Computed example of a mutant assay.
Amino acid sequence: MRAEFFIKSFCRIENGQVMFNGNTIFTTESEIFSNFSKETYRHFEISYPKFFKMDNLSKLAFLAAEIILKNENLDADKNNIALVFSNRASSLDTDRKHQKSIENSGSIFPSPAVFVYTLPNICLGEISIRHRLYSENSFFIFEKFNAEHLQLYAHNLLRTKKAEKVLCGWVEFDGDDYKAFLYLVEKNAEIPHTVQKIESLYYNE
């Protein structure tokens, strides 16, 4: 039986590499994410000054989404793309920075610029603003990558016509470790949106 929905494109970012649809399109020797993110931003000639004010989780999600969505020729009035992201650490990396700033300043709210990113779903807002997306968006926390949940949730959004496409995936940033795996689901493409295929792409098998 023919699949109902398909993966149109996918992006992986980890270990200083950016991959799109299985091909490495950018790599750097920078081991520090802040340097890697700046190099990636400049390499793809992105113009969005607010990027440099984002926390690391948002930068990671933003870059992966940018790689995928720049190929969609988005219409400012018709961007019916939902966002369904997940990770394990939530916004822990930023939470640590916020706690440290409290300890250093002695104030409950020492840095609004840090505090605003102490929720993982803020990265969804950054992407939505950038690409003018007004569809549903959700961020889930799991102990490990949960392909079945992403598949079921995306299919429900598409079947109920709450979105025409869904950008799904995993965006994890914790200390020195980072990994983004995002993919775009729609009705007409080539890669079946099955749990097995999602896991195969995520684990780069």
Rank of each mutant, 00 (worst) to 15 (best):
E29W: 13
E72S: 06
N80G: 03
K38L: 04
R132I: 15
Y41A: 03
N73L: 12
L60C: 02
A113Y: 04
T24V: 15
Y134H: 13
P120Y: 08
S58N: 11
F20H: 15
L83I: 01
R42S: 12
A61Y: 10
A82T: 13
R96N: 11
T118P: 01
L92E: 09
V114H: 04
K53C: 04
D93M: 01
S37Y: 00
N23S: 14
K53P: 00
E126L: 03
N35F: 07
E66F: 01
N137D: 11
P120V: 09
Y48G: 00
F62K: 07
E39N: 07
F109A: 13
L69G: 06
L74F: 04
A89W: 01
S91T: 09
F115N: 05
T118Q: 09
A65R: 13
S135Y: 10
S47K: 08
G106F: 10
L63W: 08
D75Q: 13
L57C: 06
F52D: 02
E39C: 01
K70C: 11
N73H: 12
S138A: 15
M54I: 11
M19C: 07
F26M: 08
V84A: 10
F62M: 09
N80V: 01
R132C: 14
F85Q: 04
F26N: 06
S105G: 07
F51L: 05
S128F: 00
L60K: 09
I102K: 15
E72Q: 12
F51S: 02
K59Y: 09
N137P: 02
A89T: 02
G22D: 03
M54L: 14
